[in-house]
Amino acid sequence: MQTATAPLPTPGTPWVGNKRAQRSKLFDSFFSKSTFLASWGTVALLLWIALEVGYAALPAMRQFGFGFIIGTQWDPTSDQYGALPLIYGTLVSAGLALLIATPLGVAIAIFLTEDYLPLKLRSFCKFLVELLAAIPSVIYGLWGIYVVIPITTPLGNWLNAHFGWIPLFSTHSSGPGFLPAAFVLAIMILPTIAALSSSSLKTTPMNLKEGAAALGATRWDVILQISLPIAASGIIGAAVLALGRAMGETMALAMLIGNNTQISPSIFAPANTIASLLANSFGEATGLEVAALMYLSFILMALTLGINAVAEVILDRTGASTRHL
């Protein structure tokens, strides 16, 4: 009854006022343009970062050229800058961390994807592993100073006393150095490796596993001969991505690696990385030192972004979801 007596819109005019329709059309085009701007703005931001760092590094690039990369002196008092000890420290600490974290991460991935645990317990374990990534770097650093260094120092000294003839163990351990830094770094990149490895392990087709099991394969026959080969490229991608993360990691290393710009083959020697030198020096740097630090930043950016791009390409091909455990 009510609807029948309600006035009908006059034919020929839309029931929304023309003005309102116009306004919503205007807003529609404004909104779509702003999404367009925001997304290309993100791309522009990345380019801007690269250009800004490169531009600020120009004075140092002119002064030192490519010799910067192989120079072994880093001395702000005499304005002598060479990046080799820092590049070495960055690569070695990240490499050591990767060496520790990859087997652990893959083991976790296997343990959490092959059905060992009841579902609830499994998702709780996943949550715990993800929490490892949530703890701030600076707290890992603090923990490293008071927990890890007191463990690695006597260990290092014992190894040095008994196996000192091996170059890796050739120095006394005075506390901060590659070993505690790499150990803490390994913990920090572990969740990345575990999460990405398990998502590529999950891509193994179930019928292949079941078929193998039906033919009498044990659980580990299936894992070693079917799941892991299928997931291999994903795991490699995960390790590469983790390497990039490890090289850019700053605070925990700044607190644990000892801030020493000398190259030593020993894993107990104090060293320095690009990122931790940046953290320690930028606040007070002036003149050419700022340019030299920018040059270092540029090198770090080229290294990490290059490595990340490689990892993205590898992971993209595997088609595994790259964000969750």
Binding site: T42, V43, L45, L46, W48, I49, E52, V53, Y55, A56, L241, G244, R245, M247, G248, E249, T250, A275, L278, A279, F282, L293, M294, S297, L300, M301, T304, L305, N308, A309, A311, E312
Partner: peptide, 21 residues
């Protein structure tokens, strides 16, 4: 792709960039 690369940017470089700008 750029967003993913940006997510891999070492956090200290965000600081370096803002320091410069």
């Amino acid at each position: 792709f750029c967003a993913k690369i940006l997510s891999g940017l070492p956090s200290i470089l965000a600081g370096v960039f803002i320091f410069g700008v």
